[in-house]
Simulated assay, not measured.
Amino acid sequence: MMHDNNMKTFVYMGGINLTKKSGVGKAVYHQISMLEKQGISVNKSGLKQSDIVHINTVFPDSVFMAVRAKALGKKVLYYGHSTMEDFKNSFVGSNFLAPVFKQWIVFCYGLGDAVITPTEYSKSLLEGYNIKKPVYALSNGIDTYYWRKEKELNLIQKKEFLKKYNLPDDKKVIMSVGHYMERKGITEFIELARNNPDYSFIWFGYTPSVLVPARVRKEIRQSPENLIFAGFVDSAELKKAYNFCDLFLFMSHEETEGIVVLEAMACEIPVIVRDIPVYNGWLVNGKNVFKFKQNDELPGILKQVLNSTDKSIVKEAGKTALERDFSRTGQRLSAIYDIIKAI
Rank of each mutant, 00 (worst) to 15 (best):
E268Q: 13
I202Y: 09
L97D: 00
K291R: 08
K239D: 14
I340Y: 03
S33Q: 14
N288V: 08
V216A: 07
P197R: 12
P134G: 11
I190F: 06
P197E: 10
R215G: 08
L138Q: 00
F87V: 12
I343G: 06
W104G: 04
N166K: 15
G178K: 05
R68C: 02
G330N: 04
E85S: 06
I32R: 02
K158F: 09
K159R: 13
S209P: 00
K37F: 02
G231L: 14
K21I: 14
A264P: 07
F161W: 14
M1R: 12
I131F: 00
Q304G: 12
N285K: 09
I105E: 09
A264D: 09
I272A: 04
K163F: 14
T57I: 12
E254G: 02
K239R: 15
A266C: 09
M175A: 11
G286V: 12
P99L: 09
M2G: 14
P224H: 07
N280Q: 09
S50H: 01
N243I: 11
Y121L: 07
G23E: 04
N95F: 01
I55D: 00
N307M: 11
V261M: 11
A230P: 12
D310M: 13
D51M: 04
F229R: 09
A335H: 09
M251D: 06
N43R: 11
A264N: 11
V53W: 01
F232L: 13
V177W: 00
E255I: 05
F91S: 06
G205F: 04
F91Q: 08
H179R: 14
P224A: 07
N243S: 06
S209I: 08
P270S: 13
Y12N: 08
K8N: 07
A236Y: 14
I220R: 05
Y145M: 12
V233R: 06
V278Y: 01
G185T: 01
N56I: 07
K74W: 12
K8E: 03
Y78G: 07
M2W: 13
G330H: 02
A230I: 11
E225M: 10
V233Y: 11
A241P: 15
S82T: 14
E182R: 08
E254M: 07
D169I: 15
E297C: 09
K74Y: 12
A266P: 04
G178W: 00
G141E: 02
L97R: 03
G73N: 05
